[in-house]
């Protein structure tokens, strides 16, 4: 019991690691990944494999999350729309929130929990069992072979998943709107496409999803690589990675919202 408790304390200490130093470490990792890619060290086969795995892992939760998100958005938009008696605006009301904020945010949080955490656990296990050193002993660059492929796979997956989740959430929203408010899905779609929403709103969300992907991929790789201390250490790393990812995602959401407004 006392072991576990001191472990939890260590985790909190590493999670609340001076933010600037953490940002510095993430930047260094990003630079190393960039260098590996630029110098052609990226292992293409590992990239395809990582992409496939992150895709398969993400699909079920992205589908579930997107459908629920659409439903939630309609239920929340409903009273506002009803207050003005403007059913034609339901698509707009649920749409802008989904495309610009909630779609990218929730997809990122879920993928951070599923793929990011999994990535940390895998890398952490490899570090703890010296598999990473074994790579170096074979004169294979771990960044090009392991880190860069995973990084790129996570960023790509999140971008595609957000695009997919946006569409699915809006379909879900249309049918929840029909069930709850009696708004014909056709009216909903008209509300979406009547000109109040444009490609700009979709792009806004997609730009965010790329930034979120970078944040999630970097922090999950960083904490995986920084794992020490056996099985409990892997748990602590995963914990720290998801917390830092979540905080980073919201923080970046704030800045990106204004930067590209």
């Amino acid at each position: 019991m006392s072991d576990a408790e001191s472990g939890a304390r260590d985790e909190a200490r590493s999670a609340s690691e001076a933010p600037l130093r953490l940002a510095g470490r993430l930047a260094l990792l990003l630079a190393a990944i960039g260098r590996a890619v630029a110098e052609g060290e990226l292992d293409r086969r590992m990239f395809v494999k990582s992409l496939y795995e992150t895709g398969v892992r993400s699909l079920p939760i992205v589908v579930l999350t997107a459908l629920f998100t659409g439903g939630i958005m309609v239920v929340q938009a409903a009273p506002i729309v009803e207050r003005y008696g403007a059913h034609g605006l339901l698509g707009w009301g649920a749409g802008f929130g989904t495309l610009r904020e909630i779609g990218p945010l929730l997809t990122a949080l879920m993928i951070s929990g599923r793929v990011g955490a999994n990535n940390t656990a895998e890398l952490g296990t490899m570090v703890v069992t010296e598999q990473l050193d074994a790579l170096r002993a074979l004169a294979i660059d771990p960044v090009g072979f392991l880190i860069a492929p995973r990084f790129l796979a996570i960023v790509t997956t999140l971008l595609l998943a957000t695009l997919f989740a946006d569409a699915l959430a809006l379909v879900g929203a249309a049918y929840v709107g029909a069930a709850l408010l009696g708004v014909d899905p056709a009216v909903f779609y008209t509300g979406l496409t009547s000109g109040l929403l444009g490609f700009g709103d979709v792009a806004h969300g997609l730009v965010k999803s790329v930034v979120f992907g970078v944040v999630i991929a970097l922090s999950s790789c960083h904490y995986g690589l920084a794992t020490t201390g056996g099985a409990p250490g892997v748990g602590r790393s995963v914990n720290a990675a998801v917390v830092v990812s979540a905080a980073g995602v919201f923080l970046c959401d704030f800045f990106v919202s204004f930067l590209i407004a």
Binding site: S112, G113, R114, A117, N118, T120, A121, E122, G124, T125, V128, T129, G230, A231, P232, G233, V234, G235, S237, V238, N239, V242
Partner: peptide
């Protein structure tokens, strides 16, 4: 050690 990581992932 992979089990603890997997459990943490599942929990989130």
């Amino acid at each position: 050690s992979d089990a603890v990581g997997a459990a943490t992932t599942r929990a989130v």
